[in-house]
């Protein structure tokens, strides 16, 4: 057989390359372009190097927002992951009740983000909101527009309500994928309920949980619409998350340079944390 030696096949990669260029590389390079310049108008701009990066990293307001952001993401992960696993374990396995449960559990996921914010905004109002009114009647002082702790608690509660179903559904599908023989073998081995969870269910859920945790981390780290509608970032700047800072900077004040620099830092943080998390999990599974 005669084999033609050439590299023409590389041209077949072109469509994908073009697609990635348009969807990721070009927009990203625009941001990189802004982040190293000070733009006054269409004709006046100066190259500033890493100045915006230095400035952003040293901004105390942004530093505290970053800390807040981490605090928020880890808090909701700590609540949503165990809660989601718990719900998945409690859901019925078959029959009409299983279908009903699936629909009920997935409902919050179908609601648009800003509508979720609006729902909770009304829900927590002291005059007409079910939760706000009930708490007030019970004598609890609760006001999300004045008390930062109340605002935080409400946002966390809202996120848990909205996104725990995602973890629950992922875990539910993971649990359904475990062959019956595992449970039967465990019974024959006289394993306790806890041992079944610890040694069969949890290990089999690892993969879906990695996806779940990564998704929830990234999404919660970029949370915008819900707190924006619910509290508008207040009271003060207590619930102003990073994305809202960024929007104010870029769209509100038109500080394109600092905003671009900050976007990149933001992007790199998410990338780094996700990578560290993923690598850590993968390494822990390897043979010692």
């Amino acid at each position: 057989m005669i084999k033609t030696e050439n590299n023409k096949a590389w041209f077949l990669v072109l469509p994908v390359f073009a697609l990635v260029a348009f969807s990721a590389i070009i927009p990203l390079m625009t941001v990189v372009n802004y982040s190293v310049q000070d733009v006054f108008d269409a004709h006046t701009r100066y190259f500033v190097g890493t100045e915006w990066f230095t400035k952003m990293l040293n901004d105390p307001a942004l530093q505290s927002a970053l800390l807040k952001q981490f605090g928020f993401s880890f808090t909701i992960l700590l609540i949503e992951v165990p809660l989601g696993i718990g719900i998945a374990l409690l859901m019925p396995k078959r029959g009409w009740s299983a279908s009903l449960c699936l629909v009920l559990v997935s409902l919050p996921l179908l609601i648009p983000l800003n509508v979720v914010g609006t729902i909770w905004q009304i829900f927590t109002r002291g005059d007409i909101g079910l939760m706000g009114w009930t708490l007030r009647e019970m004598g609890v002082s609760y006001n999300i527009s004045r008390n930062a702790v109340d605002a935080w608690a409400t946002i966390i509660l809202m996120d848990v309500w909205h996104w725990t179903p995602l973890i629950a559904l992922l875990c539910y599908s993971g649990l359904r994928a475990i062959p019956e023989a595992y449970y039967q073998a465990a019974r024959i081995d006289r394993a306790s309920r806890w041992a079944v969870f610890r040694h069969i269910q949890l290990p089999k859920l690892t993969n879906v949980l990695i996806i779940g945790v990564l998704l929830r981390f990234m999404d919660s780290f970029m949370i915008y619409a819900e707190p924006f509608v619910l509290t508008g970032g207040g009271p003060g700047s207590s619930t102003t998350f990073l994305s809202q800072w960024l929007t104010t900077m870029a769209v509100g004040q038109f500080d394109l340079g600092p905003a671009a620099a900050f976007s990149l830092i933001y992007f790199l943080i998410i990338l780094a944390v996700s990578w560290v998390f993923y690598t850590a999990i993968m390494n822990s599974q390897k043979e010692k």
């Binding site: 062959p179 023989a181 081995d189 006289r190 041992a195 290990p203």
Partner: peptide, 29 residues
């Protein structure tokens, strides 16, 4: 129930506890 009968069963597809070592698997029951 199976746990109260003196039997063991080997299934069509091998059932092992993934996260455990072979020793721990054998020691599990």
């Amino acid at each position: 129930p199976p746990e109260e009968r003196n039997i063991a069963q080997v299934f069509q597809f091998p059932v092992i506890y993934d996260t455990m070592t072979v020793f721990d698997n054998l020691a599990f029951p």
